[in-house]
Each structure stands twice: as structure tokens, then as C-alpha cells.
Simulated scan of single mutants.
Amino acid sequence: MRLDLGWKQSKVVAALLAAARREGVTIAGQASLKTMLSRWENGTGKPDVVYRQLFCTVYERDEDELGFTEAGRGNPRVAPSVDRETIDYFRSVFDQHVRADNLMGPHHLVDVVRAQAALIDDILPGAKNDVRNDLLLWACRYNEFAGWLYQDAGDPKSAMHYSDRAMDYAMAIGDPTETAYLLMRKSNIANDLGGFDRAVGLGSAALREARHVSPRVRALVLAQQARAYSLRGLGDDARRAIDAATHELERPGADADDLASYCTPAYIEMQAASCWADLDAPDRAIPVFRRALATMPTGMRRDQGLCETRLALAHAVAGDKATACRVGHHAVRTVRTATSARALSELRRLRDRLAPWRRDEEVSELSLAIKQLTTA
């Protein structure tokens, strides 16, 4: 189609980027997109559903005309066999993606994870019996992870889309813990969008069958509800939710859950500190953030940057501009190495909090550094 139109690859890349901006979706950058386009045109791999829709828009043709469907291809594609090694592959790659996310942030991963989620969609029809059940689980996990990456990259619309897709798989699996975890994730996205009442409602739905849900996932749900309460200024409700989340982690066998293994007492304490910061109680938040930074494992750069930013913000709320600036500069350097939309949002809040001292040199320098990073 490109050759029929007489277009160069650079024109197609520019058109795809423009169409993605209009549709409000995140795709690869210009250099990566040119490589992907060459691969697709040479028959190596195929675009996922997002790129297929963009190609249809750019070329003004339907999927049949562009050869994306079986009807549009001369030879039907043979689905790959799906066996236990296939499941092991997706499990091991997923673990590496989680590690890379902590090291570098979401922007380098989102296209890869989305493509692998689409690949699982394609091969599911060929999976049988117990292998199919395991593949359904990884379809759920990959789509949920894609939703998380989009959320952390600042695209809540796409985040909710992939979380909804993951929910479809969770319902097919029929595991209450998986379903509750997805409702927790949707609650988290709702908080980011300012839908605090919706976040609380999704949490209540997640806990409807609480006795069938693992303690760690119950704790995560309660922590999200606490954040929604704190963002609405409801301190007593937030405190009760955090206390309940802490209690869940004290239950026997709570540490046996691999789905929410990151939900530890330290994690819940961090969520509590964020609530205290929202409620303008920095004296309660600061020591928690400091402890978290002192014990945070190496390789957690994204979380480190977010924690440093929230610590700086807490110091600013407390009126300690010197410490806020010192920690804030460190946060900017960390966030630059593993950019996260959440951290960037907190840095903007820090800049606003420091605005009354904007004539001070140290505040002015930090404000400029934040502006340069958040508008890059």
C-alpha cells in the first residue's frame, strides 16, 4: 500500500505518529517505529491491534485490504504449537519485564509488553486443556501489566483499556483473587483520574467476596481505598482503611501470595505515608519515607524516585524549604533515569508547594530543573 501511494517510509512514520496523537494512544518513537515498519513490510512479525487500526486510518483502507485478516492474505497463517515450554517462556520473560520496569520506567517497555499480550491473544485458540488454563492466566497478567505501564507512562485511558481486557481473562479464569486484584488496579487508575468515589466503589466490589481473596490482595484494595479517602480529605476513613490493610498482612499465610508479593508491611507503610502527606500531616509521613529509602532494594529506581519526590514534598509542606530542595534535586536526578508519570506529577506538586519561596536561589534552581524535566 505504501508503494502504491508512492510514499516513503518516513512519511508513513510521520502519519502514524500524527494519527496516534489524534487518537490519544501511545506508540513507539520515530526511530523505533521506522525499524518496526521495515520488519512488518518484510514479513517479520505483524502489527498488534493498535497499530493495525492506525494503519487503516493512515492508508484509508480496511484490515482485509491491508492483509491483516486471513481473508486479506494469500496463505493462511499456521498457529504455533502451545506447550509447557511456551508457558515457561512467557513466565520468564514477564519476570524480566518487571525487573526492567523498576530499573528504567515504563516508556521503554510498553510497546513490547503490549505486543506480547497481543501474541498470547493470537495463540490462545490453539491451546488445549491445562496449558490453556495457564495461558489464560498469562494473558491476564500481560494485559494487566500493559495497563500498569500505560498508567505509569501517563496514559490512563489506555491503562483502563488494558485493565478491562485483563478483567475479561480474570473472569474466564474464575479466580476471586485475580478478579479482586484487577478491581484494585482499576481503583488505582480511578484515583489517578480524580474519580475518588469510583475508586472506593471498585474497592468495595473487590472485597465483596473477601473471604475468597488472598490477604495481600485484600490489603492492596484497602490501601487504594485509603488513598481515595485521603485525597478527599477524609482522614478518619483513611486511617481505618490503613489499619485494616495492616491487619490483613498479619494473618497467617499472608506471605504465600505470589500475585501481590510486593505488598509487604513496608509497602503498606509507604501507602500510609502518602495518605498522611495528602492530609497535610508531614510529621507522620517524613520518617516513613526516610525508612523506605534506607531499606529500598537496589534496582528499584522508579520507586526510589517517587519516594524521594514525596519526601521532598512532605518537607515542603512542613515548611522546611532547604531540605525540600536538597531532596528534590536528588529526586530529579533519579526520576530522569527512570521516568514515571506519577513521579513527574509529584514533582509538579513540589514546585507548586515551593512557589512562595520562588525568589530564593535554591528554590529557583530546583524549580527550573523540575520544569525542564517535566516539559521534556
Rank of each mutant, 00 (worst) to 15 (best):
R216Y: 06
A226K: 00
R2W: 00
A139Q: 11
N129S: 10
L313V: 06
P297V: 10
Q53C: 06
R232F: 03
V13W: 00
E361P: 08
D111H: 02
H107I: 02
R310T: 05
R77T: 15
S274V: 11
A272Y: 01
P76V: 13
Q271G: 06
Y181S: 11
A273Y: 04
D360G: 03
V327L: 03
T298C: 05
G233P: 11
R351N: 05
P282V: 07
G45C: 09
T295L: 09
H330E: 14
T26M: 11
A260R: 00
L149E: 03
R301V: 13
A31L: 07
R284S: 11
A331T: 10
A338V: 10
T57A: 10
C140F: 04
A314K: 00
L249E: 01
S230D: 11
A180Y: 01
Q53I: 04
M171G: 02
H108C: 04
P176K: 01
V82L: 07
N191E: 09
L182Y: 00
A118R: 07
A210K: 12
A139G: 15
D101P: 02
E250F: 03
C56N: 04
V25F: 01
P282T: 08
Q151W: 06
A199V: 13
A245H: 02
T177V: 13
M167K: 01
P47M: 07
Y142L: 07
S204W: 09
N42Q: 15
H161V: 10
W276A: 05
A318S: 14
A153N: 04
K8H: 10
I286A: 11
I286M: 13
D83G: 12
M300Y: 14
H315N: 06
A28D: 14
A343N: 00
A19K: 01
A172S: 11
A312E: 08
F196W: 10
R84K: 09
G105T: 03
L207F: 05
L366P: 06
E65I: 07
E361D: 14
A245W: 03
A266E: 15
M184R: 00
T334W: 03
H107V: 06
Y59A: 05
G45H: 02
